[in-house]
Design a protein around this nucleic acid. Structure first.
Lengths: 137, 137
DNA sequence: TTTAAATGCTACACGCAAGTGGTATTTAAT
DNA sequence: ATTAAATACCACTTGCGTGTAGCATTTAAA
């Protein structure tokens, strides 16, 4: 799997936010803490806010908070919003006709692993990322 | 998951070759059969030949054959030769310090799936790709 | 109302994977 | 020797994910 850098950033940020009891997170704070490039993070958060995952507060003392309950946000939702998740569903050899009924030579072993990943991503919520461990970069 | 296009091509080609009893495969034949761009396939096969996986025969009636027994070529060998495989080993959130001892919030569930993939790729050989199914593109 | 601290937007730059074009080289058949 | 069928090489182009720069806008506090 190898998520895109952007998905990686997004999940890193949201996982950090859910593990911190700060009420609002400024871009600068996230940038410094999580090692994400300045303008890139801002653009990403603006996108996530347009998609309804976070809420952005403009102006002085502004920043980002969750827009909805983190236990209703699945990892796959974020990945799909940020880079699209369908590409993770395809045949490892790129055969468009490959399926359970018409498997390529790698399908049987590969599909099971791939499906575990998809299932993991689409059943795990952001709030399940609460952890005792302090993640520092 | 989500190999590079180049790895995908490489595995597609080798898996086709092992499933066919042709003695030598011309670039043109592979290109037409497997839907890989002309010059791109040639360059790829030249690389695989320099790495010792296939043998290229120049001149009239030339083409490509396996340079060594396909049961000594692991999928991970090809992927590593073509795009490098280390990137598939990293933390899903990009934390370089993430490990079993110092896990990120996703590590425990993710690492197991990722390791299954790595294990699959590094224990499966090209000759195991022999299949009854005719793979056509 | 001015200032400072924040996000939003648009356009551009960079790097690398993917793909293309043209020519050179090799080799078997005639 | 000549020709035709094949691979090899080199440089260029394209597309896209990633990253950067500058200015505009919003808003709370003084």
């Amino acid at each position: 799997m190898r998520l895109s850098k952007t998905s990686e950033y997004a999940l890193r940020i949201l996982s950090f936010m859910i593990n911190s009891d700060v009420e609002i997170f400024s871009a600068n704070y996230l940038i410094k803490t999580l090692n994400v490039p300045d303008k890139y993070l801002r653009r990403l958060m603006t996108n996530l806010s347009k998609k309804g995952f976070v809420k952005s507060v403009q102006g002085r003392d502004g920043g980002y908070t969750f827009a909805k309950n983190a236990d209703s946000i699945y990892l796959s939702d974020i990945i799909d919003a940020v880079e699209g998740i369908d590409k993770y569903r395809g045949c490892i050899l790129g055969f468009s006709s490959c399926s359970d009924d018409n498997p390529c030579a790698l399908h049987n072993k590969y599909a099971s692993i791939r499906d575990q990943l998809i299932t993991f991503l689409s059943t795990t919520t952001i709030s399940e990322l609460k952890s005792n461990e302090a993640l520092k970069f």
